[in-house]
């Protein structure tokens, strides 16, 4: 698995300042972007394309806090398992189903304002969980990365990922492109 922290030369951890992350990408791009090799050999250009693609992927993995959290778990060998993580409460799943229905209605309404409004609500929900995740990661670290302390963290992350999926499905994109 690609280690985005290593590629961008950043310390591994959930706390990561946006500016620091951007700075890391810029620094690496200045060295590796294919534009820097336009007059180089074909081999150099190919290599630069490959490496820059990895850097771009690394940046994407780290710039979303949720993906960053998932990456951290995966790198430590505790990857979130799609579907089999029985960590979410029944109440949360119920809420998710309601939210999904609401999202479908909003999409059908073609109402940009309503969609935007709903997106904001979900975004706040996610942001709230990201804050909690921050504490959980700290607690995990304080416990010397003891797997036992991971359960609440995984539950939080699973919920946040659900929310994110709903958000991703709730886009004004398709309306404009028919």
């Amino acid at each position: 698995m690609l280690d985005p922290f290593q590629l961008l030369n950043l310390p591994r951890g959930f706390d990561l300042d946006d500016c620091v992350l951007r700075g890391a990408l810029i620094k690496a791009s200045l060295q590796w972007h294919p534009d820097r090799f336009a007059l180089g050999t074909e081999e150099q250009r190919d290599k630069a394309e490959d490496h820059m693609a990895d850097l771009n992927e690394a940046f994407a993995m780290l710039s979303s806090p949720l993906q960053r959290a998932e990456t951290l778990l995966a790198l430590s060998g505790f990857a979130l398992n799609e579907g089999t993580d029985q960590t979410s409460s029944a109440a949360f799943l119920m809420r998710m189903m309601e939210l999904k229905e609401e999202a479908d209605d909003a999409l059908k309404s073609d109402d940009v304002v309503r969609i935007g409004e709903m997106r904001r609500r979900i975004q706040e929900d996610i942001a709230h969980r990201v804050e909690q995740l921050r504490d959980s990661f700290r607690a995990w670290k304080a416990a010397d990365y003891c797997p036992g302390t991971l359960t609440p963290l995984r539950a939080l992350l699973t919920e946040a990922v659900y929310l994110q999926r709903t958000l991703d499905g709730l886009q004004i994109t398709t309306m404009f492109q028919s």
């Binding site: 294919p34 394309e49 490959d50 820059m52 693609a53 990895d54 771009n56 992927e57 940046f59 994407a60």
Partner: peptide
Amino acid sequence: RNSAIPAQ
């Protein structure tokens, strides 16, 4: 869409 290029 809107992924940085080059991308793989």
